[in-house]
Each structure stands twice: as structure tokens, then as C-alpha cells.
Design a protein around this nucleic acid. Structure first.
Lengths: 163, 163
DNA sequence: GTGCGTCACTTGAACGCTCAACCACGCTCT
DNA sequence: AGAGCGTGGTTGAGCGTTCAAGTGACGCAC
């Protein structure tokens, strides 16, 4: 049983900052989205990911990967959004195990109505605090951390060349 | 109504990475703490902040600030930890409005038992992915973001010289 | 010294998330 | 063809968080 390596000053600063961001930033963005349209940040993201997909639909498991969520959490949320008429679930034609979530026209319209306020909030709460160089550094560092947590996370494949 | 400024490539990368980290990192650390001792990351942090305070106690509102949480959330959690015998609530002697949360000896012992595994997890899930320079950059950038979200957040006063 | 506004918290209900159990399907092996 | 295993997804219970409302206590004005 060897003595653990405690955090040095910079490590502690980085960790505490990340921890704070982690609770403050989602809260701030949730807040804006909730007052603008009774939607959580996660709800928004689910719809945004669908809106960017080919045909505006994705299998549940791929949608879960794109939102970094568990299938269980996603299932509950999709059920909620479906009740509001923003999404529709359909069985996959070739594989009866998979369900695909489709963004409806109403859902797309809702998303488009919410989008400007949301990106504006992302800017004012977060990006506006940073220089261009900071943003670049953060993207690089952030992706390293994501890779450590999930080495084939989809965001790592977005721009990368495939073999 | 002007056209909103959408995110450029780097901004999008930084934002998506932060969003993913935000869900994956707490989940990973929660997991480790929960299997090691039925404690959430937030529970741990509450106790850690108390352990570092003078006399191992803090008024609820200061503890809330140090954990970036609402007073309501903290109140519920402190009640839970108090039931486990790790904390104790006492009225403030001079101001009857304030309650102070005191870390008990049992709580301190629990924290010390959990700490090595926790910092190890912080390293393996997060810090080990980064170079020394990355850690430094992240600390700087992270603090800028925190400042934007809450301009007198306590972590910004830790090392800074006071007027 | 009596209102009256504010501060520091607490509470309960509604909602969201996690975890474990479950079901249905497809694939592989024999 | 059928047994067994892995995959994709759903469900319900339990717990955690948020939100709005409520309770005292302090402090300032007059």
C-alpha cells in the first residue's frame, strides 16, 4: 500500500475548475432553455443530434452514443418527447430489435425556434470568455479527456480520417 | 432579429467535448466512489470541503458556495450525511439564522479511507490523459469560464492576492 | 420599539436519473 | 431445427435534484 500521489497546485486548479464548470454551465444553459421553452439541455441535445442525422432519424443506441447517455435514460426522455409530438419511434424494417427515433416536423420547428437563443447562451456563458487560442486549446485538451473516458467516442471520429 | 452567429469548427469541437466530459467524467468518478463506499461525487466533495476548512466546519451557505450547489440541494444532502453520522449540524452561536455543518471524526475517517482511491480515479480518468502543459492551460481556461459564470466564485480567490 | 425587508435555511412535491430486471429478437453452433 | 448467448430496448422502483413556498431571525427606518 503506497502513499497516493496527491494533486499538485495546477492539477488541483484544473480539477476544481472543471468540477465547478460541470455544475454551473449545465445549470445556466438548462435555465435558459427551460424559460425559453420548457426543455432541458439534454432534451435539446437529443433533438439537435437527430436534426443533424441523415433523414432526421437514428437508432436509439446510436442516439445514446451521440448524447453520451445510457440507453435507459434516453428511453425515458424519448418517451417524454414523443408525448409532446416532437419525436416518433418506429420499428426498424430490417432488424426488429432496433427502434429508430425520428424528429417530427413539429420537433424540428421547435428546435429551430430554440436554437438561436441557445447558441447565444453558449456564447455568453462560455465561449465569450475565451480567446480563439483558448478555444483551440480547449478543443484539443477536451478531446484528449474524452478519449481517455471512451476511446471510441463519436466526436473523435467526426473530423478524423478513416482507414 | 439578426441571424445568430453559429459555432465555427473549433468552437463546436470545444463545446461538444465539454458536453461529453460533463456527462462521462462525473459518471466515472461517481461509479468509483459508489462501489468503494456508497458515496456520490457530490457527497465526497461536501466532506472534502469541510475537511479543508478551519475547525472542519462551515456555514451552510459557504459550503454551498464551495460545492457550487444550491442551498436546497445541500440541505437535503447534509441531512442524509448527518443520518449516517458523518456530519453534524449546529446552530451558529452569534447568528441564529445560520447553521454550521461540522465534519465528525467518523466522517473524517471515512473521507480519509476514500481519498486515495478517489484521487487515483481522478488521475486515471482525467489527469493522466494530459501533459503538464495541458493541465496548466486547462486550469487557466477553466478559471476563465468559471469567472464568466460566477465572477466571485471562491476558487478564483484561492491563490489571488487580495486588495 | 415596532414594522418591514432581507437573509439563511428547510421542507415537500414534482420531476428526472440510475440501476437491475426483463423481454424480444437475431446469430451461431450443432 | 432448436439451444444458448449476445444485442437493443423498455420498464418500474428507488433515490436525487429542483422549484416554490414557508419559517424564523436579523437589522434598519422611523
Amino acid at each position: 500500500m503506497t502513499e497516493p500521489r496527491w494533486l499538485n497546485a495546477d492539477e488541483r486548479r484544473a480539477w476544481l475548475a472543471l468540477l465547478s464548470i460541470n455544475t454551473l454551465l449545465p445549470a445556466a444553459l438548462d435555465n435558459q432553455l427551460h424559460t425559453a421553452g420548457k426543455v432541458s439541455l439534454f432534451d435539446y441535445n437529443v433533438m439537435a443530434m437527430l436534426s443533424e442525422a441523415e433523414g432526421r432519424f437514428l437508432p436509439m443506441s446510436q442516439l445514446a452514443a451521440r448524447t453520451s447517455s445510457s440507453l435507459s435514460r434516453l428511453s425515458h426522455v424519448v418517451a417524454k418527447l414523443e408525448k409532446r409530438g416532437w419525436l416518433e419511434r418506429r420499428p426498424h424494417p430490417r432488424d426488429a430489435r432496433v427502434t429508430t427515433a425520428h424528429l417530427s416536423d413539429v420537433g424540428m420547428a421547435t428546435l429551430e425556434a430554440l436554437a438561436p437563443g441557445h447558441v447565444e447562451a453558449v456564447r455568453t456563458k462560455f465561449l465569450d470568455a475565451l480567446t480563439e487560442r483558448d478555444v483551440n486549446d480547449l478543443a484539443r485538451i477536451g478531446e484528449k479527456i474524452v478519449a481517455r473516458l471512451d476511446d471510441d467516442h463519436w466526436i473523435l471520429r467526426e473530423t478524423e480520417s478513416r482507414p
